[in-house]
Simulated assay, not measured.
Amino acid sequence: MPSHSLPAFDPRKVPLLPRAPNEMPAHAQRLTADGLRDLFIRPPIWSPELLREKRFADRAPAQAAVLLPIVLRERLTLLLTLRSAHLSTHSGQIALPGGKLDAGDADATAAALRETHEEIGLPPDRVEVLGSLPVYVTGTSYTVTPVVGLVHPEFELVPNADEVDDVFEVPLDFLMDPANHHRHVHEFQGTVREWYSMPYDDSGRERFIWGATAGMLRNFYRLLSA
């Protein structure tokens, strides 16, 4: 990721906090298509870890939705995007596809599917929606509903070059293993902030997943490990 696309500080260099002890990876059965389907039909008792970031943007609140597109490969993967560097918020960062709700959207699920189609060309009929996670409020005042869906393979993506620089996949079991979750602490604009990152080596290219995306994935891990 080029340096000009990063925020005022480089999140890769921010100090780490100690790991939480005795955290186990997500249950192996839940890292399968049938396990995920059953999870949303009969969810366990669980609590999300992260619900709201400290606000750092002076803008009006907005409703948004993102899709957690889990691709049905032999080893399940999660589809992620690299946002274009010129975007007004979260530019140059790795993200889940999605965006703001429009007046014509029936609900958050409809918005997530529409925005994903507009961003990367994934047809809604290739997505089997399982359910949603608790809303997550970003520091930029977006109230985001994360929608979880299984993506049937043999799709052809057409990324919108105005919004997306790249689309790639990360194994779901990597993201749902707390050994790959790093906690950071940093003082920024007079406020101490903490966040997670999940750096992934994609054939020699570092994919630095952090901030709101990592926060929502951390909540997903909490559900899968409950």
Score class of each variant (00 low, 15 high):
residue 1 M to T: 09
residue 2 P to Q: 09
residue 3 S to A: 14
residue 4 H to D: 04
residue 6 L to I: 05
residue 7 P to E: 02
residue 7 P to H: 03
residue 8 A to C: 02
residue 9 F to P: 00
residue 13 K to E: 14
residue 14 V to R: 07
residue 15 P to F: 02
residue 16 L to V: 00
residue 17 L to V: 01
residue 17 L to M: 10
residue 18 P to D: 00
residue 19 R to V: 04
residue 20 A to S: 08
residue 22 N to Q: 10
residue 23 E to M: 09
residue 25 P to G: 00
residue 28 A to L: 13
residue 28 A to C: 06
residue 29 Q to G: 09
residue 30 R to V: 12
residue 33 A to Y: 00
residue 37 R to V: 06
residue 38 D to C: 03
residue 39 L to Y: 02
residue 44 P to G: 04
residue 48 P to L: 00
residue 49 E to C: 05
residue 50 L to K: 04
residue 52 R to F: 04
residue 55 R to Q: 13
residue 55 R to F: 00
residue 60 A to W: 01
residue 61 P to M: 05
residue 63 Q to P: 02
residue 64 A to F: 03
residue 67 L to C: 11
residue 67 L to T: 08
residue 67 L to G: 10
residue 68 L to M: 15
residue 71 V to M: 13
residue 75 R to H: 15
residue 80 L to H: 08
residue 81 T to A: 10
residue 84 S to A: 15
residue 86 H to Q: 15
residue 91 S to E: 11
residue 92 G to C: 09
residue 93 Q to C: 02
residue 93 Q to Y: 01
residue 93 Q to L: 04
residue 93 Q to S: 13
residue 98 G to T: 11
residue 100 K to A: 13
residue 102 D to K: 13
residue 106 A to H: 12
residue 107 D to H: 13
residue 109 T to A: 15
residue 110 A to Y: 08
residue 110 A to R: 07
residue 111 A to P: 13
residue 111 A to Q: 08
residue 111 A to G: 08
residue 112 A to V: 10
residue 114 R to S: 07
residue 115 E to V: 11
residue 116 T to C: 15
residue 118 E to R: 14
residue 120 I to Q: 01
residue 121 G to T: 01
residue 121 G to A: 07
residue 125 D to A: 09
residue 127 V to Y: 02
residue 131 G to H: 13
residue 134 P to Q: 07
residue 134 P to M: 05
residue 135 V to Q: 12
residue 135 V to T: 12
residue 138 T to C: 07
residue 140 T to I: 05
residue 141 S to A: 13
residue 143 T to S: 12
residue 144 V to M: 12
residue 148 V to Y: 09
residue 149 G to P: 13
residue 150 L to R: 10
residue 152 H to E: 13
residue 160 N to T: 04
residue 161 A to D: 14
residue 161 A to Q: 15
residue 164 V to T: 11
residue 164 V to K: 03
residue 164 V to W: 04
residue 170 V to T: 03
residue 170 V to E: 01
residue 174 F to C: 02
residue 178 P to Q: 02
residue 178 P to V: 05
residue 179 A to W: 05
residue 180 N to T: 07
residue 181 H to N: 06
residue 188 F to E: 14
residue 188 F to W: 15
residue 189 Q to E: 14
residue 189 Q to P: 00
residue 190 G to R: 06
residue 193 R to V: 07
residue 194 E to Y: 01
residue 194 E to Q: 14
residue 198 M to V: 03
residue 199 P to S: 05
residue 201 D to T: 03
residue 203 S to E: 12
residue 204 G to H: 06
residue 205 R to S: 02
residue 207 R to K: 14
residue 210 W to S: 11
residue 212 A to W: 03
residue 216 M to L: 05
residue 216 M to R: 11
residue 217 L to R: 01
residue 219 N to T: 09
residue 220 F to G: 06
residue 222 R to A: 15
residue 223 L to W: 02
residue 225 S to E: 14
